[in-house]
């Protein structure tokens, strides 16, 4: 197991290194000089040159890449060109909205999908199963931002149960914060719940056809007992993989939902930064999202190997 984990860790480091080079190079070819942008069109060339030196933009590309990566490893993401404040502080501030939103959505997706998937699998081919499958087929097709708009119109504007947008901040209390994130989380969770319910259903149906379930039934367990005691635990492996993958997509997907609800999360930060040509912020947020996806994949690989010893001997 240790050798397998070491191999995966090496692969993780290589993936992160290559991803960081890709992100850095893409931003590098972006047109426009940040120093000129910050000082405006009337700036004198020597002032621009001084600011370029202050921001470290006059150094060779390789040096700047090493500085950027070295800085990120120590938590220093550089200084925002537009706001002149540390990028790491801006990201931490916005993560306080985006991260709880993604986690909240993930919990909701699981809470909706598990009962729906188990219910459908246990009634395979019957009316309940067909109902769940139709609902999940529609759920997958609904764009989350459209659902969010309709939810705002109905639950916030017509019924007044929630605020139509904005975030009061965690200082206003956990209840107020959670309430502000509820509609966005539901909108974000529904399509994911539909996908997860379908995976749960098909994984459970596969397990219910396995020999060990037949053995359990032969030993006197009824269908329900076999499902809950034996099939469910084994069906969880693909389901947990999808949950892991969904978390990183929820973090990225939150970018769109934050626009609907005017939430001050990573999404709004990245769009503001694009419009202000604050590319150092764009670069850092993108790298953070990619880091999240790669890390989640790494953890899934290790969890898989822990559960299934055959995987450790592969590769």
């Amino acid at each position: 197991m240790f050798a397998y984990a070491l191999g995966r860790a090496f692969s993780l480091v290589v993936s992160l290194a290559v991803a960081s080079v890709v992100v850095f190079l893409v931003i590098e070819v972006a047109p426009g000089d940040p120093a000129s942008y910050m000082l405006g069109v009337n700036a004198r060339p020597d002032t621009i040159a001084a600011l370029r030196a202050e921001l470290g933009l006059d150094a060779p590309t390789v040096v700047r890449y090493v500085r950027w990566v070295g800085g990120m490893l120590t938590g220093d993401f550089g200084t925002s060109y537009a706001y002149r404040s540390p990028v790491s502080e801006m990201i931490v501030e916005r993560l306080a909205v985006s991260l709880p939103l993604a986690l909240y959505a993930l919990v909701l997706a699981v809470v909706i999908a598990f009962p729906a998937g188990i219910f459908a699998a246990s009634r395979r081919g019957r009316r309940g199963d067909v109902g769940v499958m139709v609902a999940t087929q529609i759920g997958v097709a609904i764009p989350n931002f459209w659902f969010a708009m309709l939810a705002v119109s109905f639950f916030a504007i017509n019924l007044g149960w929630f605020a139509a947008g904005g975030f009061p901040g965690w200082d206003a209390g956990i209840v107020a914060g959670v309430k502000a994130l509820t509609l966005p989380a539901v909108a974000l969770a529904l399509p994911q719940a539909a996908i997860l319910a379908r995976v749960m259903r098909s994984s459970l149906i596969d397990m219910l056809g396995e020999d060990f379930i037949r053995t359990a039934r032969a030993k006197g367990l009824n269908r329900r007992q076999a499902l809950w005691r034996h099939a469910l635990r084994n069906a969880m492996i693909p389901v947990l993989t999808i949950i892991g993958l969904q978390f990183s997509f929820l973090l990225a997907g939150a970018i769109i939902i934050e626009q609907v609800f005017y939430l001050p999360g990573l999404g709004r930060l990245v769009f503001q930064s694009i419009s202000q040509r604050d590319l150092i912020v764009v670069e850092s947020v993108v790298m953070l999202l990619v880091f999240a996806v790669i890390m989640v994949n790494f953890v899934i690989d290790l969890a898989y190997a822990l559960v299934d010893p055959r995987l450790r001997s592969r590769r």
């Binding site: 893409v26 972006a30 047109p31 990225a252 694009i274 993108v286 990619v290």
Partner: peptide, 15 residues
Amino acid sequence: FAFPALVIAILITAV
């Protein structure tokens, strides 16, 4: 795979 479509779009738009 580590770059969701939205993230790729953000990068391309930035450039």
